[in-house]
């Protein structure tokens, strides 16, 4: 290598680019890890010196599927986030998931990074996860014996960096529900700078209104970056049901949500600060979803 170059920190690696699933499983048996967009795993390889065997999923035709028009939006494991974001049917059908997708990294990274990669990295701060939770996301998997499973996302994520994928099992696609009639959703996060930064805290909300378009029938809430995995905080929103949105009830809901989370203190933010952020974000996100609903009507 030319000496003028700063050396890459990537270890010497073996890369396989198969075009069928059988070969993918064969490489996994030989110790290879899955490579989708690479925006998490290549960084990890530079920092830790491993994995040094990778098998790329981008050559597998069935993993390129993206269907945003059905009642369940379906996205294959090698579809880049930007392909999804460019789809009006996706942005209209799952606004909270789209908000999350649009806040990942930067435009360049979204052309590479996949939603399945975002989920499988299982970072507590993953931006697409809270939206996926309130859109009832199901993770579809397959293993080398061709056994298939469908796992609710909330059961799939088991801890920071941990999923309940078995040995030699991989994710084929994610499915999540489109907004129904009288529904709207939104996701917001708090970061120090707008792009290229990870959430200190984040909230996704899905509202369903009565026919009058004012009274809330159901509210789903999910909190990100304030626990080992994203947290389903829908219980905190019970107080909102059966009433039009009011500041008083929103305050109670925001308080309850901030009690449900278990944030950590680290170099980025203290636990107390994260709790405060949740309080503020819950109100903001519910109001944003309601405004969007009003604009759509």
């Amino acid at each position: 290598m030319a000496s003028a170059l700063r050396p890459s920190h990537l270890p010497e690696m073996d890369l396989q680019c198969p075009t069928n699933l059988g070969d993918v499983f064969r490489h996994i048996s030989n110790g290879a890890q899955l490579l989708a967009g690479g925006t998490d795993i290549l960084l990890q390889a530079s920092v830790r010196g491993e994995p040094n065997k990778l098998v790329w999923t981008g050559g597998i035709e069935s993993m390129k599927e993206f269907d945003a028009d059905s009642d369940f939006i379906k996205v294959g494991a090698s579809v880049p986030l930007s392909t999804m974001i460019k789809s009006n049917a996706f942005r209209d059908g799952a606004p909270a998931v789209a908000d999350g997708a649009q806040s990942v990294g930067s435009l360049q990274l979204r052309n590479q990074a996949t939603m399945v990669g975002n989920v499988c990295t299982a970072s507590p701060a993953a931006d697409t996860v809270p939206g996926l939770l309130i859109h009832n996301c199901v993770v579809a998997t397959i293993d080398k014996e061709n056994n298939k499973r469908e796992i609710a996302l909330k059961d799939f994520l088991t801890g920071p960096g941990k999923t309940n994928l078995g040995e030699g099992e991989l994710v084929t696609c994610l499915s999540f529900s489109r907004l129904g009639k009288n529904q709207m959703s939104a996701y917001q996060r708090f970061t120090q700078r707008e792009a290229l930064d990870l959430a200190f805290a984040s909230v996704a909300a899905r509202l369903e209104f009565e026919e009058d378009g004012q009274t809330l029938m159901t509210v789903n809430l999910a909190l990100g970056a304030v626990g080992p995995t994203a947290i389903d905080a829908s219980a905190a929103a019970d107080i909102l049901k059966g009433h039009p949105i009011s500041e008083g009830r929103l305050d109670i809901c925001a308080d309850a949500a901030s009690q449900l989370c278990s944030p950590i203190s680290d170099h980025r933010a203290s636990a107390g600060y994260r709790r405060q952020l949740i309080r503020a974000l819950v109100g903001d996100v519910v109001r944003q979803a309601a405004t969007r609903y009003g604009n759509k009507k």
Partner: peptide, 25 residues
């Protein structure tokens, strides 16, 4: 590390960070 964009190239017409792409891919 994918942060700065100095390594931006177009791949099939879309901007990507060449520091986070393997050549084989």
């Amino acid at each position: 590390e994918g942060d700065c964009g100095a390594c931006t190239v177009l791949v099939d017409g879309e901007p990507m960070c060449s520091c986070l792409l393997l050549s084989g891919v």
